[in-house]
Amino acid sequence: MRRSPAFEIFRYAAIALALALTLLPILWMVSMAFKPIPEWSATGADLTWIPRAPTLDNFRFVFGESTSDLIVALERTAWRPILASLLSAVFGTAIAMVCGTAAAYGLSRFGSGKNLPLALIQLRLFPPMAVMIPVMIMWAFLGLIDTWWGLALIYGIVTLPFAFWLMKTFFDEMPREIEEAALVEGCSRFRVFMKITLPMMRAPLASSALLVFILNWSDYLIALLLTTKNWVTIPVYMASLSSSMTGQLYGAKAALGLLAAIPPVILGIAIQKHLVRGLTFGALKQ
């Protein structure tokens, strides 16, 4: 199809605008992460896109090395929050994916637990605050406050509906004949699930897991309420990066933000093949 040049110009302008809106804030964060204090604390006229004196000081700072410029004593370094975030997000994602996939398969294939979908979505119907305060009390009672496993458990619970709904749609789309073909060959139900269904579901599993992981990884509210000291996560830790002397430590925040973006990006690239391929189930043309 041939379009008029005016339309093409408009089209590319729109794309450029969308890209700018998405990418410029991220670029600004990247730039800030490498700026020394005078540059990120500078006001107005002095701001530049490219750091004039690029430095790794911000990174050194969050990992606890004292730097000449920043005379702020950190209560703790970024190591522990990174570990907390990784542990809680990874295990939370595992809980949500395992339970969500199993429940979705049961409902999709056998119709077991017909009220489950609604019961699960109910978790997300209330304002998070309304749910989280009672959870906080329960967690305190169970001794799960300020532990990574307590956090992983609640992450698993609140992201379970996403895992469940996504996987249910995918299971519904997967033709039953594939499983029946294996059953006819004398394969047991469980074995069919493990050897046929799950391997064919690799792409949906990967993309659902990525979404759930990002949700868990970027949570702030739950971690704020359920952790106090030992197992605060990156977002909570990041909020604490300020001082009465200097105000918000933008440089350090940018450095940490940059680091926090790495795991989702790596995961995204790792499963990109599955994401773009989408769900075709190769052979099945109805």
């Binding site: 033709p175 064919m200 690799r202 190769g282 099945l284």
Partner: peptide
């Protein structure tokens, strides 16, 4: 029994 489906049901993986 052996069963051949209209939509093949091949294990594509």
């Amino acid at each position: 029994v052996g069963f051949v489906f209209q939509n093949y049901a091949i294990f594509t993986h």
